[in-house]
Design a protein around this nucleic acid. Structure first.
Length: 488
RNA sequence: GGGCGGGUAACAAAGGGGCUAUGUGGUGGACUGCAGAUCCACUUACGUGGGUUCGAAUCCCACCCCGCCCUCCA
Protein backbone atom coordinates (compact mmCIF):
# COMPACT_ATOMS: atom_id res chain seq x y z
CA UNK A 1 0.00 0.00 0.00
CA UNK A 2 1.07 3.52 -0.72
CA UNK A 3 1.59 6.18 1.86
CA UNK A 4 0.21 9.57 0.99
CA UNK A 5 1.34 12.71 2.78
CA UNK A 6 -0.20 16.15 2.72
CA UNK A 7 2.52 18.47 1.47
CA UNK A 8 2.22 22.11 2.54
CA UNK A 9 4.30 23.07 -0.48
CA UNK A 10 1.72 21.81 -2.97
CA UNK A 11 -1.35 21.90 -0.76
CA UNK A 12 -2.13 18.32 -1.75
CA UNK A 13 -1.78 14.79 -0.52
CA UNK A 14 1.05 13.22 -2.46
CA UNK A 15 2.34 9.73 -2.82
CA UNK A 16 5.41 9.35 -0.65
CA UNK A 17 8.59 8.41 -2.53
CA UNK A 18 11.76 8.53 -0.48
CA UNK A 19 14.97 9.94 -1.92
CA UNK A 20 16.72 6.71 -1.12
CA UNK A 21 14.77 3.49 -1.31
CA UNK A 22 13.88 1.98 2.03
CA UNK A 23 15.12 5.00 3.94
CA UNK A 24 13.48 8.14 5.22
CA UNK A 25 15.32 11.23 6.26
CA UNK A 26 13.30 13.59 8.35
CA UNK A 27 14.04 16.88 10.02
CA UNK A 28 11.78 18.60 12.51
CA UNK A 29 12.41 22.06 13.88
CA UNK A 30 13.20 21.70 17.54
CA UNK A 31 12.97 23.87 20.58
CA UNK A 32 14.52 27.16 21.47
CA UNK A 33 15.82 26.22 24.86
CA UNK A 34 15.18 29.15 27.17
CA UNK A 35 12.31 27.79 29.28
CA UNK A 36 10.58 24.53 30.06
CA UNK A 37 9.00 22.54 27.25
CA UNK A 38 5.23 22.92 27.15
CA UNK A 39 2.35 20.80 25.89
CA UNK A 40 2.38 22.65 22.57
CA UNK A 41 5.87 21.30 21.97
CA UNK A 42 4.62 17.93 23.11
CA UNK A 43 1.80 18.02 20.58
CA UNK A 44 4.18 18.65 17.70
CA UNK A 45 6.88 16.19 18.68
CA UNK A 46 4.38 13.50 19.52
CA UNK A 47 2.81 13.93 16.09
CA UNK A 48 6.21 13.43 14.48
CA UNK A 49 6.99 10.55 16.79
CA UNK A 50 3.92 8.84 15.36
CA UNK A 51 5.02 9.71 11.81
CA UNK A 52 8.40 8.18 12.50
CA UNK A 53 6.95 5.09 14.17
CA UNK A 54 4.58 4.47 11.30
CA UNK A 55 7.38 4.83 8.76
CA UNK A 56 9.31 2.26 10.75
CA UNK A 57 6.21 0.06 10.93
CA UNK A 58 6.21 0.16 7.14
CA UNK A 59 9.79 -1.01 7.13
CA UNK A 60 11.68 2.19 6.44
CA UNK A 61 14.96 2.92 8.09
CA UNK A 62 14.31 6.38 9.48
CA UNK A 63 16.89 9.01 10.33
CA UNK A 64 15.23 11.63 12.47
CA UNK A 65 17.03 14.91 13.15
CA UNK A 66 15.71 17.57 15.48
CA UNK A 67 17.74 20.70 16.09
CA UNK A 68 18.32 22.56 19.32
CA UNK A 69 18.29 26.32 19.00
CA UNK A 70 20.73 27.43 21.65
CA UNK A 71 21.80 30.76 20.15
CA UNK A 72 18.91 33.18 20.18
CA UNK A 73 17.68 36.57 21.42
CA UNK A 74 15.36 35.13 24.02
CA UNK A 75 18.05 32.90 25.44
CA UNK A 76 20.49 35.77 25.68
CA UNK A 77 17.91 37.97 27.34
CA UNK A 78 16.84 35.34 29.88
CA UNK A 79 20.42 34.37 30.65
CA UNK A 80 21.51 37.96 31.13
CA UNK A 81 18.61 38.58 33.48
CA UNK A 82 19.89 35.76 35.61
CA UNK A 83 23.50 36.75 35.20
CA UNK A 84 24.31 33.49 33.51
CA UNK A 85 26.37 32.59 30.52
CA UNK A 86 23.88 32.14 27.63
CA UNK A 87 25.39 28.89 26.46
CA UNK A 88 25.48 27.44 29.93
CA UNK A 89 21.90 28.57 30.40
CA UNK A 90 20.75 26.89 27.20
CA UNK A 91 22.61 23.69 28.09
CA UNK A 92 20.62 23.53 31.30
CA UNK A 93 17.31 23.91 29.48
CA UNK A 94 18.30 21.51 26.74
CA UNK A 95 18.61 18.75 29.30
CA UNK A 96 15.45 19.77 31.07
CA UNK A 97 13.40 19.91 27.89
CA UNK A 98 14.67 16.60 26.59
CA UNK A 99 13.95 14.86 29.87
CA UNK A 100 10.45 16.35 29.90
CA UNK A 101 9.87 14.79 26.50
CA UNK A 102 11.22 11.51 27.85
CA UNK A 103 8.80 11.71 30.74
CA UNK A 104 5.94 12.14 28.34
CA UNK A 105 6.98 9.00 26.51
CA UNK A 106 8.04 10.66 23.29
CA UNK A 107 10.91 8.84 21.66
CA UNK A 108 14.08 10.81 21.13
CA UNK A 109 15.22 11.79 17.67
CA UNK A 110 18.41 10.17 16.37
CA UNK A 111 20.41 13.37 16.29
CA UNK A 112 20.01 16.65 18.16
CA UNK A 113 22.42 19.08 16.52
CA UNK A 114 22.97 22.35 18.34
CA UNK A 115 23.21 25.69 16.60
CA UNK A 116 26.18 26.73 18.71
CA UNK A 117 28.19 23.77 17.46
CA UNK A 118 27.62 24.50 13.77
CA UNK A 119 28.71 28.10 13.46
CA UNK A 120 31.52 27.22 11.05
CA UNK A 121 29.11 25.40 8.76
CA UNK A 122 26.74 28.32 8.86
CA UNK A 123 29.47 30.78 7.91
CA UNK A 124 30.37 28.57 4.96
CA UNK A 125 26.77 28.44 3.79
CA UNK A 126 26.34 32.19 4.16
CA UNK A 127 29.46 32.71 2.08
CA UNK A 128 28.02 30.49 -0.58
CA UNK A 129 24.74 32.40 -0.60
CA UNK A 130 26.64 35.67 -0.98
CA UNK A 131 28.74 34.13 -3.74
CA UNK A 132 25.59 33.07 -5.57
CA UNK A 133 24.35 36.64 -5.37
CA UNK A 134 21.44 36.20 -2.99
CA UNK A 135 22.81 38.00 0.03
CA UNK A 136 24.68 41.17 0.83
CA UNK A 137 26.89 42.46 3.61
CA UNK A 138 25.79 45.61 5.33
CA UNK A 139 27.79 47.05 8.19
CA UNK A 140 28.84 43.78 9.77
CA UNK A 141 25.44 42.14 9.15
CA UNK A 142 24.58 39.83 6.30
CA UNK A 143 21.10 39.90 4.83
CA UNK A 144 19.26 37.64 2.47
CA UNK A 145 17.90 39.57 -0.45
CA UNK A 146 14.36 38.33 -0.82
CA UNK A 147 13.76 40.02 -4.15
CA UNK A 148 16.57 38.00 -5.73
CA UNK A 149 14.83 34.78 -4.90
CA UNK A 150 11.96 34.50 -7.34
CA UNK A 151 10.22 31.62 -5.56
CA UNK A 152 9.97 33.49 -2.29
CA UNK A 153 6.51 32.85 -0.81
CA UNK A 154 5.97 29.47 -2.44
CA UNK A 155 5.49 27.64 0.84
CA UNK A 156 3.25 30.14 2.60
CA UNK A 157 1.48 30.96 -0.67
CA UNK A 158 2.11 34.66 -0.41
CA UNK A 159 3.24 37.18 -2.95
CA UNK A 160 6.23 39.39 -2.27
CA UNK A 161 4.35 42.54 -3.31
CA UNK A 162 1.56 41.85 -0.85
CA UNK A 163 3.93 41.10 1.99
CA UNK A 164 5.71 44.40 1.57
CA UNK A 165 2.66 46.31 2.79
CA UNK A 166 2.89 44.92 6.31
CA UNK A 167 6.65 44.71 6.63
CA UNK A 168 8.61 47.23 8.60
CA UNK A 169 12.23 47.98 9.07
CA UNK A 170 13.22 48.00 12.72
CA UNK A 171 15.36 50.97 13.67
CA UNK A 172 19.02 50.09 13.62
CA UNK A 173 18.69 47.44 10.93
CA UNK A 174 20.68 47.82 7.81
CA UNK A 175 18.37 46.11 5.34
CA UNK A 176 17.95 47.23 1.78
CA UNK A 177 14.46 45.83 1.63
CA UNK A 178 12.07 45.46 4.54
CA UNK A 179 11.45 41.78 3.74
CA UNK A 180 15.13 40.88 3.83
CA UNK A 181 16.18 38.82 6.81
CA UNK A 182 19.45 38.43 8.67
CA UNK A 183 21.81 35.58 7.97
CA UNK A 184 24.45 37.02 10.25
CA UNK A 185 24.18 39.67 12.96
CA UNK A 186 27.13 41.69 14.17
CA UNK A 187 27.96 41.31 17.84
CA UNK A 188 26.44 43.51 20.48
CA UNK A 189 27.94 43.82 23.95
CA UNK A 190 27.01 41.01 26.31
CA UNK A 191 26.12 38.55 23.57
CA UNK A 192 27.83 35.31 22.59
CA UNK A 193 29.89 35.92 19.47
CA UNK A 194 31.95 34.13 16.90
CA UNK A 195 34.60 35.30 14.47
CA UNK A 196 33.46 35.55 10.86
CA UNK A 197 34.60 37.12 7.57
CA UNK A 198 32.21 39.97 8.39
CA UNK A 199 33.51 40.55 11.87
CA UNK A 200 32.43 39.20 15.22
CA UNK A 201 28.80 38.20 15.47
CA UNK A 202 26.27 35.42 15.56
CA UNK A 203 24.01 33.71 13.04
CA UNK A 204 20.39 34.58 12.33
CA UNK A 205 17.76 32.08 13.35
CA UNK A 206 16.78 30.54 10.03
CA UNK A 207 20.23 29.63 8.78
CA UNK A 208 20.84 26.97 11.43
CA UNK A 209 18.05 24.73 10.13
CA UNK A 210 19.22 25.03 6.53
CA UNK A 211 22.71 24.06 7.60
CA UNK A 212 22.02 21.30 10.07
CA UNK A 213 19.28 19.57 8.10
CA UNK A 214 21.37 19.33 4.95
CA UNK A 215 24.52 18.46 6.87
CA UNK A 216 22.98 15.39 8.49
CA UNK A 217 20.46 14.40 5.82
CA UNK A 218 21.90 15.63 2.50
CA UNK A 219 20.15 17.54 -0.25
CA UNK A 220 17.38 16.88 -0.91
CA UNK A 221 15.96 14.95 2.02
CA UNK A 222 12.47 13.59 2.53
CA UNK A 223 10.42 15.21 5.26
CA UNK A 224 10.75 18.59 6.86
CA UNK A 225 8.31 19.39 9.62
CA UNK A 226 7.31 21.67 12.40
CA UNK A 227 4.38 23.51 13.90
CA UNK A 228 2.10 25.43 11.57
CA UNK A 229 3.41 28.66 13.04
CA UNK A 230 6.76 27.99 11.42
CA UNK A 231 5.49 28.05 7.84
CA UNK A 232 6.17 31.75 7.68
CA UNK A 233 8.69 33.16 7.96
CA UNK A 234 10.93 30.38 9.27
CA UNK A 235 10.38 27.65 6.71
CA UNK A 236 9.90 30.09 3.88
CA UNK A 237 13.29 31.56 4.70
CA UNK A 238 14.90 28.16 5.07
CA UNK A 239 13.77 27.27 1.57
CA UNK A 240 15.08 30.58 0.20
CA UNK A 241 18.49 30.16 1.83
CA UNK A 242 18.99 26.54 1.03
CA UNK A 243 17.90 26.81 -2.57
CA UNK A 244 20.01 29.95 -2.96
CA UNK A 245 22.98 27.89 -1.85
CA UNK A 246 22.31 24.51 -3.46
CA UNK A 247 19.73 25.13 -6.17
CA UNK A 248 16.22 23.71 -6.42
CA UNK A 249 15.08 20.98 -4.14
CA UNK A 250 15.58 21.09 -0.41
CA UNK A 251 12.99 18.96 1.37
CA UNK A 252 10.44 17.00 -0.65
CA UNK A 253 7.57 16.90 1.81
CA UNK A 254 6.69 19.70 4.19
CA UNK A 255 4.50 18.67 7.07
CA UNK A 256 2.95 21.09 9.55
CA UNK A 257 1.20 20.25 12.78
CA UNK A 258 -1.92 22.09 13.98
CA UNK A 259 -1.29 24.31 16.96
CA UNK A 260 -2.63 23.39 20.35
CA UNK A 261 -5.29 25.47 22.06
CA UNK A 262 -5.97 25.58 25.77
CA UNK A 263 -9.62 25.84 26.72
CA UNK A 264 -10.37 27.21 23.28
CA UNK A 265 -7.67 29.84 23.34
CA UNK A 266 -4.31 30.06 21.71
CA UNK A 267 -1.61 29.11 24.16
CA UNK A 268 0.60 32.14 24.64
CA UNK A 269 2.65 34.07 27.13
CA UNK A 270 0.35 37.07 27.00
CA UNK A 271 -2.69 34.97 27.90
CA UNK A 272 -0.62 33.34 30.62
CA UNK A 273 -2.00 29.92 29.76
CA UNK A 274 1.15 28.06 28.87
CA UNK A 275 1.10 24.59 30.40
CA UNK A 276 4.59 23.15 30.90
CA UNK A 277 4.91 19.40 30.37
CA UNK A 278 6.03 19.13 33.97
CA UNK A 279 2.69 20.45 35.16
CA UNK A 280 0.63 18.51 32.64
CA UNK A 281 2.00 15.14 33.69
CA UNK A 282 1.18 15.94 37.29
CA UNK A 283 -2.45 16.31 36.25
CA UNK A 284 -2.66 13.51 33.72
CA UNK A 285 -0.80 10.31 33.10
CA UNK A 286 1.54 10.73 30.12
CA UNK A 287 -0.28 8.00 28.25
CA UNK A 288 -3.57 9.89 28.56
CA UNK A 289 -1.93 12.94 27.07
CA UNK A 290 -0.51 10.82 24.29
CA UNK A 291 -3.89 9.26 23.65
CA UNK A 292 -5.45 12.68 23.50
CA UNK A 293 -3.01 13.87 20.85
CA UNK A 294 -3.08 10.62 18.91
CA UNK A 295 -6.86 10.68 18.71
CA UNK A 296 -6.71 13.93 16.79
CA UNK A 297 -5.47 14.38 13.25
CA UNK A 298 -2.01 15.98 13.24
CA UNK A 299 -3.09 18.91 11.10
CA UNK A 300 -6.03 19.81 13.36
CA UNK A 301 -5.65 22.14 16.29
CA UNK A 302 -6.46 20.17 19.45
CA UNK A 303 -8.17 21.85 22.35
CA UNK A 304 -6.61 20.92 25.66
CA UNK A 305 -9.50 20.76 28.14
CA UNK A 306 -10.22 18.77 31.23
CA UNK A 307 -13.20 17.15 29.53
CA UNK A 308 -11.15 16.07 26.53
CA UNK A 309 -8.46 14.55 28.72
CA UNK A 310 -11.06 12.80 30.84
CA UNK A 311 -12.53 11.35 27.73
CA UNK A 312 -9.11 10.16 26.67
CA UNK A 313 -8.66 8.38 29.98
CA UNK A 314 -11.91 6.47 29.66
CA UNK A 315 -11.17 5.44 26.09
CA UNK A 316 -7.72 4.29 27.05
CA UNK A 317 -9.12 2.22 29.90
CA UNK A 318 -11.34 0.49 27.41
CA UNK A 319 -8.33 -0.52 25.34
CA UNK A 320 -6.40 -1.70 28.38
CA UNK A 321 -9.27 -3.81 29.67
CA UNK A 322 -9.31 -5.90 26.52
CA UNK A 323 -5.54 -6.02 26.42
CA UNK A 324 -5.39 -7.28 30.00
CA UNK A 325 -8.22 -9.75 29.56
CA UNK A 326 -6.42 -11.24 26.57
CA UNK A 327 -3.40 -11.56 28.78
CA UNK A 328 -5.53 -13.48 31.27
CA UNK A 329 -6.74 -15.94 28.66
CA UNK A 330 -3.31 -16.27 27.14
CA UNK A 331 -1.91 -17.55 30.41
CA UNK A 332 -4.70 -19.90 31.36
CA UNK A 333 -5.57 -22.32 28.60
CA UNK A 334 -9.26 -22.39 29.42
CA UNK A 335 -10.66 -21.54 25.99
CA UNK A 336 -10.67 -22.67 22.40
CA UNK A 337 -8.59 -21.35 19.57
CA UNK A 338 -10.71 -19.34 17.18
CA UNK A 339 -10.30 -18.97 13.44
CA UNK A 340 -12.56 -15.97 13.23
CA UNK A 341 -10.30 -13.93 15.48
CA UNK A 342 -7.60 -14.34 12.85
CA UNK A 343 -9.91 -12.50 10.48
CA UNK A 344 -10.43 -9.79 13.06
CA UNK A 345 -6.68 -9.37 13.32
CA UNK A 346 -6.33 -9.13 9.55
CA UNK A 347 -9.09 -6.53 9.44
CA UNK A 348 -7.38 -4.59 12.19
CA UNK A 349 -4.06 -4.52 10.42
CA UNK A 350 -5.53 -3.73 7.05
CA UNK A 351 -7.79 -1.00 8.39
CA UNK A 352 -5.00 0.48 10.44
CA UNK A 353 -2.63 0.64 7.49
CA UNK A 354 -5.26 2.15 5.23
CA UNK A 355 -5.95 4.82 7.81
CA UNK A 356 -2.30 5.64 8.43
CA UNK A 357 -1.41 5.53 4.74
CA UNK A 358 -3.92 8.32 4.23
CA UNK A 359 -1.80 11.13 5.61
CA UNK A 360 -1.42 9.52 9.04
CA UNK A 361 -5.12 9.51 9.82
CA UNK A 362 -4.82 8.53 13.46
CA UNK A 363 -8.50 9.17 14.35
CA UNK A 364 -9.45 6.69 11.65
CA UNK A 365 -6.86 4.28 13.01
CA UNK A 366 -8.50 4.65 16.43
CA UNK A 367 -11.83 3.79 14.92
CA UNK A 368 -10.37 0.59 13.50
CA UNK A 369 -8.88 -0.27 16.87
CA UNK A 370 -12.18 0.24 18.65
CA UNK A 371 -13.96 -1.91 16.10
CA UNK A 372 -11.46 -4.65 16.79
CA UNK A 373 -12.03 -4.30 20.51
CA UNK A 374 -15.75 -4.52 19.94
CA UNK A 375 -15.38 -7.73 18.02
CA UNK A 376 -13.15 -9.25 20.67
CA UNK A 377 -15.60 -8.24 23.38
CA UNK A 378 -18.39 -9.89 21.46
CA UNK A 379 -16.32 -13.03 21.16
CA UNK A 380 -15.43 -12.98 24.84
CA UNK A 381 -19.10 -12.60 25.67
CA UNK A 382 -19.69 -15.98 24.05
CA UNK A 383 -16.70 -17.97 25.19
CA UNK A 384 -13.16 -17.81 26.54
CA UNK A 385 -10.38 -17.69 23.97
CA UNK A 386 -7.48 -20.10 23.74
CA UNK A 387 -3.91 -19.06 24.59
CA UNK A 388 -2.65 -18.87 21.03
CA UNK A 389 -5.63 -16.86 19.82
CA UNK A 390 -5.37 -14.56 22.81
CA UNK A 391 -1.68 -14.09 22.33
CA UNK A 392 -2.09 -13.24 18.66
CA UNK A 393 -4.92 -10.81 19.34
CA UNK A 394 -3.04 -9.15 22.16
CA UNK A 395 0.10 -8.83 20.08
CA UNK A 396 -1.79 -7.37 17.12
CA UNK A 397 -3.44 -4.82 19.37
CA UNK A 398 -0.15 -3.89 20.95
CA UNK A 399 1.58 -3.52 17.63
CA UNK A 400 -0.83 -1.01 16.15
CA UNK A 401 -1.21 0.87 19.43
CA UNK A 402 2.56 1.17 19.68
CA UNK A 403 2.63 3.17 16.47
CA UNK A 404 0.25 5.60 18.14
CA UNK A 405 2.64 5.67 21.14
CA UNK A 406 0.13 3.68 23.19
CA UNK A 407 0.68 0.46 25.12
CA UNK A 408 4.41 1.08 24.91
CA UNK A 409 6.53 -0.77 27.44
CA UNK A 410 3.41 -2.32 28.91
CA UNK A 411 4.55 -4.04 32.01
CA UNK A 412 2.62 -6.93 33.38
CA UNK A 413 0.93 -5.14 36.22
CA UNK A 414 2.09 -6.12 39.69
CA UNK A 415 0.01 -7.33 42.57
CA UNK A 416 1.33 -7.20 46.06
CA UNK A 417 1.78 -10.83 47.25
CA UNK A 418 1.39 -9.75 50.88
CA UNK A 419 -2.00 -8.28 50.20
CA UNK A 420 -3.12 -11.47 48.53
CA UNK A 421 -1.69 -13.50 51.37
CA UNK A 422 -3.64 -11.57 53.96
CA UNK A 423 -6.80 -11.95 51.89
CA UNK A 424 -6.24 -15.69 51.70
CA UNK A 425 -5.94 -15.70 55.46
CA UNK A 426 -9.01 -13.54 55.84
CA UNK A 427 -11.09 -16.09 53.98
CA UNK A 428 -9.55 -19.01 55.85
CA UNK A 429 -7.69 -20.39 52.88
CA UNK A 430 -4.67 -22.19 54.26
CA UNK A 431 -3.26 -23.10 50.84
CA UNK A 432 0.22 -21.90 50.00
CA UNK A 433 -0.17 -19.98 46.78
CA UNK A 434 2.87 -20.29 44.54
CA UNK A 435 2.35 -16.79 43.23
CA UNK A 436 0.16 -13.80 43.81
CA UNK A 437 -1.68 -14.66 40.61
CA UNK A 438 -2.43 -18.13 41.81
CA UNK A 439 -3.57 -16.60 45.07
CA UNK A 440 -6.14 -14.53 43.21
CA UNK A 441 -7.31 -17.60 41.34
CA UNK A 442 -7.77 -19.42 44.66
CA UNK A 443 -9.74 -16.50 46.07
CA UNK A 444 -11.98 -16.52 43.04
CA UNK A 445 -12.53 -20.23 43.41
CA UNK A 446 -13.60 -19.58 46.97
CA UNK A 447 -15.95 -16.92 45.65
CA UNK A 448 -17.39 -19.39 43.13
CA UNK A 449 -18.13 -21.81 45.94
CA UNK A 450 -19.78 -19.06 47.94
CA UNK A 451 -21.90 -18.12 44.95
CA UNK A 452 -23.00 -21.71 44.46
CA UNK A 453 -24.15 -21.71 48.05
CA UNK A 454 -25.86 -18.38 47.45
CA UNK A 455 -23.61 -16.89 50.10
CA UNK A 456 -23.68 -13.49 48.43
CA UNK A 457 -22.13 -11.78 51.42
CA UNK A 458 -18.86 -13.68 51.13
CA UNK A 459 -18.90 -13.56 47.33
CA UNK A 460 -19.34 -9.80 47.24
CA UNK A 461 -16.87 -9.27 50.03
CA UNK A 462 -14.17 -11.13 48.12
CA UNK A 463 -14.94 -9.12 45.01
CA UNK A 464 -14.83 -5.87 46.95
CA UNK A 465 -11.59 -6.77 48.70
CA UNK A 466 -9.97 -7.56 45.39
CA UNK A 467 -11.23 -4.32 43.90
CA UNK A 468 -9.63 -2.45 46.78
CA UNK A 469 -6.23 -3.74 45.74
CA UNK A 470 -6.91 -2.92 42.09
CA UNK A 471 -8.19 -6.24 40.78
CA UNK A 472 -11.33 -6.16 38.65
CA UNK A 473 -13.47 -9.28 38.66
CA UNK A 474 -15.84 -9.94 35.79
CA UNK A 475 -18.41 -12.72 35.79
CA UNK A 476 -18.83 -14.40 32.43
CA UNK A 477 -20.86 -17.36 31.16
CA UNK A 478 -17.93 -19.63 31.78
CA UNK A 479 -16.93 -18.29 35.16
CA UNK A 480 -15.21 -15.30 36.67
CA UNK A 481 -12.16 -13.70 35.10
CA UNK A 482 -9.99 -10.95 36.49
CA UNK A 483 -7.46 -8.37 35.51
CA UNK A 484 -5.48 -5.68 37.22
CA UNK A 485 -6.96 -2.34 36.48
CA UNK A 486 -4.40 0.18 35.22
CA UNK A 487 -4.42 3.42 37.10
CA UNK A 488 -4.21 6.62 35.13
C1' G B 1 -6.22 44.39 4.19
C1' G B 2 -3.48 39.71 2.11
C1' G B 3 -2.85 34.34 2.72
C1' C B 4 -4.18 29.48 4.79
C1' G B 5 -7.54 26.17 7.26
C1' G B 6 -12.29 25.32 9.34
C1' G B 7 -17.88 25.32 10.67
C1' U B 8 -20.43 17.57 11.36
C1' A B 9 -25.26 15.07 16.31
C1' A B 10 -25.25 16.58 23.89
C1' C B 11 -19.57 16.99 23.70
C1' A B 12 -15.00 15.54 21.17
C1' A B 13 -13.61 14.11 16.35
C1' A B 14 -12.94 11.44 11.22
C1' G B 15 -15.00 11.07 6.47
C1' G B 16 -16.09 13.73 1.93
C1' G B 17 -21.58 12.62 -4.55
C1' G B 18 -25.78 7.13 -3.04
C1' C B 19 -22.89 2.77 1.77
C1' U B 20 -23.43 2.32 10.57
C1' A B 21 -17.41 6.52 11.29
C1' U B 22 -15.58 6.21 16.08
C1' G B 23 -14.97 7.73 21.31
C1' U B 24 -17.40 9.98 25.67
C1' G B 25 -22.13 11.21 27.81
C1' G B 26 -27.67 10.32 28.00
C1' U B 27 -32.04 6.92 27.45
C1' G B 28 -33.96 2.00 26.90
C1' G B 29 -32.94 -3.18 26.64
C1' A B 30 -29.82 -7.86 27.13
C1' C B 31 -26.63 -10.42 30.51
C1' U B 32 -25.95 -10.83 36.15
C1' G B 33 -28.10 -13.06 42.60
C1' C B 34 -26.39 -7.86 42.77
C1' A B 35 -22.87 -4.15 41.12
C1' G B 36 -19.47 -2.99 37.54
C1' A B 37 -17.83 -4.20 32.92
C1' U B 38 -19.55 -5.88 28.25
C1' C B 39 -23.12 -6.30 24.22
C1' C B 40 -27.51 -4.36 21.38
C1' A B 41 -30.79 -0.28 20.10
C1' C B 42 -31.96 4.70 20.30
C1' U B 43 -29.95 9.68 21.19
C1' U B 44 -33.85 15.61 15.00
C1' A B 45 -25.45 15.35 12.23
C1' C B 46 -23.20 17.84 8.61
C1' G B 47 -23.20 27.10 9.27
C1' U B 48 -26.98 29.97 5.71
C1' G B 49 -28.96 30.78 0.77
C1' G B 50 -28.71 29.41 -4.17
C1' G B 51 -26.86 26.11 -8.17
C1' U B 52 -24.98 21.38 -10.69
C1' U B 53 -26.88 16.18 -10.39
C1' C B 54 -31.46 10.83 -10.91
C1' G B 55 -29.12 11.81 -6.00
C1' A B 56 -25.20 16.88 -2.16
C1' A B 57 -22.96 16.83 4.47
C1' U B 58 -19.56 15.80 0.29
C1' C B 59 -18.86 19.46 -6.03
C1' C B 60 -19.73 24.97 -7.66
C1' C B 61 -21.16 30.19 -6.36
C1' A B 62 -22.47 33.81 -2.75
C1' C B 63 -22.98 35.02 2.25
C1' C B 64 -22.36 34.57 7.69
C1' C B 65 -19.27 33.01 11.55
C1' C B 66 -14.49 30.86 13.82
C1' G B 67 -9.23 29.90 14.13
C1' C B 68 -4.23 30.57 12.54
C1' C B 69 -0.23 33.19 9.86
C1' C B 70 1.46 38.03 7.84
C1' U B 71 6.47 40.18 14.66
C1' C B 72 9.08 35.68 18.40
C1' C B 73 6.60 31.01 18.63
C1' A B 74 6.07 23.71 18.16
Amino acid sequence: MVLRIYNTLTGKKEEFKPVEEGKVKMYVCGMTVYSDAHIGHARTYLAFDIVRRYLEYKGYKVTYVQNITDVDDKIIKSANERNMDPLEYSRYYTERCLSDMDALGIRRADIYPKASEHIEDMIKMIEKIIENGYAYVSGGDVYFSVEKFKDYGKLSKQKIEEMKAGARVEPGEKKRNPLDFALWKSAKPGEPKWQSPWGEGRPGWHIECSVMSTKYLGVPFDIHGGGQDLIFPHHENEIAQTEAAYGDGFANYWMHVGLLKVKGEKMSKSLGNIIPIRDAIKMYDPEIIRFFFASMHYRSPPNFTEEALDNARKSLEKIYRVYDLLRYYKKRNIGDEDEEVKEFIKDLEKGFEEAMDDDFNTPMAMKVIFEFIDKINNKLKEKPLGPETSRAAQEALRKVCNVLTLLQDVKEPDINPDEIKSLLEKYGLEVEAKSAEEGVDILLKRREDARKEKDWGTADSIRDDLKKIGIEVEDTKSGAVWYIKRRF
